[in-house]
């Protein structure tokens, strides 16, 4: 009997000790984790825009986030776009499924709150009211230079060969692809994992929207000059020339990983197509309603 008591006491004490160690560690690391993730995201964004390594980003370049929500009530569904208007003022623009403007609701929250997914979702739910449920769908970034749009950054996720592949894309205002970055994937090393290599993802660079709409993959080896350009082994001018030469061509599939290659090209195609449709609708509504946004 005495044994049981000592066992229980000691086990409890050790559990408490363990909990303290883990708790302290969690508190210390969770902020750093968020910070590092944010920094990483920023870095990926700038690299996609062409500011590699130490290249300084000009002051005039600004990024504006658009958060898309699906708002569901009992009888209907609509899409809400949360855009920053000015400083801490946000606007939730509600658009119905046919692209017609419904209403807009102003909202104030700090920029730090807006970056925090859960807090933002809560705020949006609050202003929409309890009769509807809101669900966060995705977020895109509009990049402006001196007030003029220069690019969009879109993140997305699609089914790869094994599990999901999550990517970030940069497109210019006419939806020509500026770059592709693979953020997460679980493809096989040596085969599908090659999707994150330059010679695959750079193939997407410079593909115009018209080509991208119907893009497919071909099972053929990449021509030697193109491969060199994709790997950045020739100078800048040459790369641009070769990229222009191949811009109407399909994507060359990876050896032994055709399914992964096809998954990526179809995924990218889908993301850009959907985005192009949505941004046109949003722009039309913003123009009709004479809403001023910083982009």
């Amino acid at each position: 009997m005495k044994d049981i008591i000592t066992i229980v006491v000691r086990l409890t004490v050790s559990c408490l000790l363990a909990a303290v160690v883990m708790g302290v560690c969690f508190i210390f690391t969770s902020n750093a984790k968020k910070h590092n993730e944010h920094v990483k995201e920023q870095q990926v964004m700038y690299e996609l825009l062409g500011y590699k390594g130490d290249a300084k980003v000009p002051e005039s370049v600004a990024m504006h986030e658009i958060y898309r929500y699906v708002i569901t009530t009992v009888e209907s569904q609509s899409i809400g776009y949360l855009v920053a208007v000015h400083g801490e003022e946000f606007l939730l623009v509600e658009i119905d499924l046919d692209g017609k403007f419904l209403k807009n609701i102003p909202l104030t929250m700090s920029e730090a709150d807006a970056l925090e997914g859960d807090l933002r979702d809560k705020k949006v739910q609050e202003i929409v009211g309890p009769s509807a449920t809101v669900k966060f769908a995705d977020q895109t970034v509009v990049v402006t230079d001196d007030g003029k749009r220069i690019a969009y950054l879109i993140s997305g996720k699609f089914q790869g060969f094994k599990t999901f592949v999550s990517v970030m894309l940069a497109v210019d205002p006419s939806f020509t692809l500026l770059g592709l970055e693979i953020l997460e994937h679980e493809e096989d090393p040596g085969l599908g994992a090659e999707i994150e290599k330059d010679y695959f993802k750079n193939q997407f660079k410079g593909k115009p929207f018209a080509v991208l709409k119907n893009i497919d993959v071909v099972k053929a080896p990449i021509p030697a000059d193109y491969l060199k350009a994709l790997n950045g082994k020739v100078d800048e001018q040459e790369i641009l020339k070769i990229r222009d030469m191949y811009k109407d061509k399909d994507i060359y599939a990876l050896t032994g990983a055709t399914i992964s290659s096809r998954a990526v090209s179809n995924g990218v195609k889908g993301i850009v197509k959907k985005f192009a449709y949505r941004v046109t609708v949003l722009d039309k509504v913003l123009a009709e309603q004479r809403l001023t946004v910083p982009f």
Binding site: A18, M22, C25, S30
Partner: peptide
């Protein structure tokens, strides 16, 4: 398990 959690959190963060 405690120490694995610690290293797991640290690696994930840094």
């Amino acid at each position: 398990a405690t120490w694995v959690t610690v290293i797991d959190l640290v690696l994930a963060a840094y």
